[in-house]
């Protein structure tokens, strides 16, 4: 009975899952190098969504074009945030950073609420209702762009980490800080670069997401919880893990939405999460404990 809806649901799930994956890539990168859970990740996503929204409504800038502006801007913001707020609060204790990022999230969310109220907003871009016929299903163009865009940025991040000196320095700092210092890597600079890159990934995710989604000051929470789940499911710090887990969770959510009703879609995500923590706590692609 639901068979005809199954394929479109899976495709929609993959599209949303790719955005989850992109958000989680930033989070897992920051965790892998700085060994901190960035609770402000969702709030930064929310800020990026508002930035893209206002660029569109006030400046007429297409969200996909806005990537070119918002990625560098959010990279810079992330760099400065790490250097001026998070690093000075560290004092060698990771729980300090946990509290600082949580505090940042609360401040950013409430500032957004104060500035822009809790009104739910969205953009009515010209391709919001355009669909393509994939043969098995009709899918909005914006979702297709979001899917391939997210994969492309994931690939870009992988290439950066694999082929550039910056990427190699980031991987070196992640596992062997003193060794990295001794080849002349400025570790504090690499921490801030990592935080900046993770934040830039969030900006890309926001621009890809905006045409098919909505914005409220609370929108970050929905994503950051799923992003945490994605990171744990994929194995903390694992890139392929985050990518696979993001796509998987997108499909799980879509299928639960289909069979249990739209509002219960996210139940599946957390059921998967609980099962994962019970039976394979290192994650799908996690290193041995």
């Amino acid at each position: 009975m639901l068979g005809g809806l199954l394929v479109p649901a899976v495709i929609n799930g993959l599209a949303l899952g790719a955005i989850y994956a992109l958000t989680a890539l930033g989070l897992t990168l920051i965790y892998g190098v700085l060994h901190i859970i960035n609770f402000a990740h969702g709030s930064l996503l929310m800020l990026a969504l508002y930035a893209a929204l206002f660029l569109y409504t006030l400046g007429g800038v297409d969200p996909y074009v806005a990537i070119l502006v918002l990625m560098p801007a959010f990279f810079a913001a992330g760099y400065v945030l790490q250097r001026l707020v998070i690093q000075p609060a560290w004092h060698g204790r990771d729980e300090n950073v946990l509290l600082v990022t949580l505090g940042l999230a609360i401040v950013i969310d409430n500032l957004a609420l104060w500035l822009w109220t809790s009104t739910t907003r969205s953009i009515d871009s010209r391709y919001a209702f355009e669909v393509v016929d994939l043969g098995v299903a009709f899918i909005p163009i914006a979702k297709l762009v979001g899917f391939f865009g997210a994969l492309a940025f994931g690939a870009l991040l992988w290439a950066l980490m694999t082929f550039t000196d910056l990427g190699k320095a980031i991987r070196a700092v992640a596992r062997e800080r003193e060794g990295a210092r001794l080849v002349g890597v400025r570790v504090e600079h690499i921490y801030a670069m990592t935080f900046g890159i993770g934040t830039a990934m969030v900006a890309a995710a926001a621009c890809l997401l905006l045409p098919t989604f909505y914005v409220t000051p609370q929108v970050g929470y929905a994503f950051v919880l799923v992003a945490f789940t994605t990171v744990v499911l994929g194995g903390m710090g694992s890139f392929p893990g985050a990518l696979f887990a993001g796509l998987l969770l997108g499909v799980v959510e879509a299928l639960c939405g289909l069979y249990l009703g739209e509002s219960l879609g996210q139940i599946g995500i957390f059921v998967v999460f609980i099962l994962m923590v019970l039976f394979r706590p290192t994650g799908l692609f996690g290193a041995r404990a």
């Binding site: 190699k168 070196a172 596992r175 062997e176 990295a180 080849v183 002349g184 890597v185």
Partner: peptide, 18 residues
Amino acid sequence: RVFPNMNVRENLELGSYR
């Protein structure tokens, strides 16, 4: 203090990072 998660070539390349 070599970088255990990176291969021999990448370790050497980072020797000329600075």
